[in-house]
Simulated scan of single mutants.
Amino acid sequence: MTKLKQYILHFILVASFLAVVSCTDEQSVLPVAEGTPLTVTAEIGTTDSPSTRVVALNSYDRSDFIAGDGINVVCSRNGVQLASSGYTLNAAATAWAVTTGSPGLGFLPATTCRASFPVAYDGIRADQSAADGSAFLRSNYLLTPEVSVSGAEVNFTGDNAFGHGNVKLTLKFQGSGGVSLPAFSSITLQASGLRTGDATKVETIYPFRPDTGQHSWCAVIYPRAADTDITVTVMDEYSVTYKVVLRCAMQKSTSYTYTLKLRNDILVPVGNAEIEAWDLKVRHTGGFD
């Protein structure tokens, strides 16, 4: 057990004079020895109980961590990074172990830890259309608050759980008058700062189709926190092109769903945009602009 010496000075204020009357040598004991390996727990913030989370979506859009997921944990003091290490969720999805090849983290007094997912996140991908959802997932940045370390455990749970750092955009397509939709050969999204937040640069994203049996696509976009016109361009199997412009506020950790109907060879927004906190199931609606 590491011990630090703590000196306590006793003062007496008499007639505007400050006098030191004694100095005692007391022992202050740290809760754990410096360097003790940290135990990490982590979850993705949600109001849902584990039994009601949408496990089927975990392959591309995490509602909870799954076995084999890796996170990066950074330890800092006064804003200065001291150490970092990877942690991996075990095969039973019950505990986080130091990732092979990582040093692990040990207890240091007066420090904080912060964790991120995925490991080595390098920004929102332009092409998120990979059939396995891997490019979407690589774009889906999750981050925790700074958590104070007071013992041999650091818990990224509850109010300190992982939260979504970006925005989710979902497009649902419908046919008109009972006519089925043709197959789509390509879909693109374009807007200023769609991937990086740049105020003037028009950027493109190719969205991901989670279910080939549904006319629904989704993409991770940048949290610009500004009303932004997003141009959706669809080309069908007959090389016919359809376009529509959607207004999106692009607020961090928010999920926007737009339903678009193919009517008279044009795309028409149906009703209001569905807007929800990405990590919650309670929904509210808002206008397109």
Rank of each mutant, 00 (worst) to 15 (best):
Gly271Thr: 06
Asp211Ser: 09
Ser253Arg: 10
Thr228Ser: 05
Glu146Gly: 05
Thr257Ser: 13
Pro207Val: 07
Arg209Ala: 07
Tyr258Phe: 14
Asn155Lys: 11
Ser239His: 07
Val147Trp: 01
Leu260Asp: 02
Gly165Gln: 14
His215Gln: 06
Thr170Asp: 05
Tyr256Leu: 07
Val220Trp: 07
Gly197Lys: 08
Lys243Pro: 03
Thr257Lys: 08
Thr233Pro: 06
Ser239Asp: 04
Ser176Trp: 10
Leu194Tyr: 09
Tyr258Asp: 11
Val220Phe: 04
Lys172Tyr: 05
Leu267Arg: 01
Leu246Phe: 08
Phe208Thr: 01
Thr259Cys: 11
Ile221Gln: 02
Ser150Trp: 13
Glu146Trp: 14
Phe173His: 01
Leu260Trp: 01
Asn264Met: 09
Ala226Arg: 08
Asp198Ser: 15
Asp159Trp: 02
Asp236Ala: 01
Asp227Cys: 05
Tyr258Val: 05
Tyr256Arg: 05
Thr212Ile: 11
Cys248Arg: 14
Ala249Thr: 13
Ile221Ser: 00
Ser185Tyr: 08
Arg209Glu: 12
Gly158Gln: 00
Thr212Arg: 07
Pro269Tyr: 14
Val167Lys: 05
Met250Ala: 04
Leu260His: 07
Val167Gln: 10
Thr170Glu: 02
Glu146Ser: 14
Ser180Cys: 12
Tyr141Leu: 11
Leu260Asn: 01
Tyr256Trp: 12
Lys261Glu: 10
Asn272Val: 08
Val179Leu: 07
Tyr206Gln: 14
Lys261Met: 13
Thr259Trp: 04
Cys248Ile: 15
Met235Gln: 07
Gly177Val: 09
Thr204Ala: 02
Ser253Glu: 15
Gly177Leu: 03
Ala183Cys: 14
Lys252Met: 14
Ile205Glu: 14
Leu267Ser: 01
Asn264Glu: 11
Phe136Pro: 14
Ser139Thr: 06
Ser255Ile: 09
Arg138Gly: 13
Pro145Lys: 10
His215Cys: 05
Thr212Phe: 14
Leu189Arg: 08
Ser150Lys: 10
Glu237Ile: 03
Val244His: 05
Asp211Gln: 03
Gly178Asn: 01
Val232Lys: 00
Leu143Tyr: 01
Ser139Tyr: 13
Asp159Glu: 05
Phe184Cys: 11
Lys243Asn: 08
Phe136Ala: 14
Ser176Tyr: 12
Val179Asp: 08
Trp217Gly: 02
Gln190Thr: 15
Val154Gly: 08
Lys168Ile: 06
Lys252Thr: 13
Leu137Met: 12
Cys248Gln: 15
Phe184Leu: 09
Asp159Tyr: 00
Gly197His: 03
Ala161Gln: 05
Cys248Glu: 15
Leu267Ala: 02
Lys261Ile: 04
Leu171Phe: 01
Ser239Pro: 00
Asp159Leu: 02
Ile205Leu: 10
Thr170Ser: 13
Leu169Tyr: 05
Asp265Val: 09
Val179Ile: 13
Leu260Ile: 12
Ser253Leu: 13
Ser150Phe: 09
Ala226Asp: 03
His164Thr: 07
Thr204Ser: 09
Phe184Val: 06
Ala199Trp: 10
Gly213Thr: 13
Leu246Ile: 12
Ile266Lys: 13
Gly197Val: 15
Val147Ile: 10
Thr196Pro: 14
Met250Ile: 06
Phe208Ser: 15
Gln251Asn: 15
Arg263Leu: 12
Lys261Arg: 06
Thr241His: 02
Pro210Ser: 06
Gln190Ser: 07
Thr157Leu: 01
Arg138Ala: 15
Gln214Thr: 12
Tyr258Glu: 11
Glu153Phe: 02
Thr233Cys: 03
Asp265Gln: 08
Ser148Pro: 04
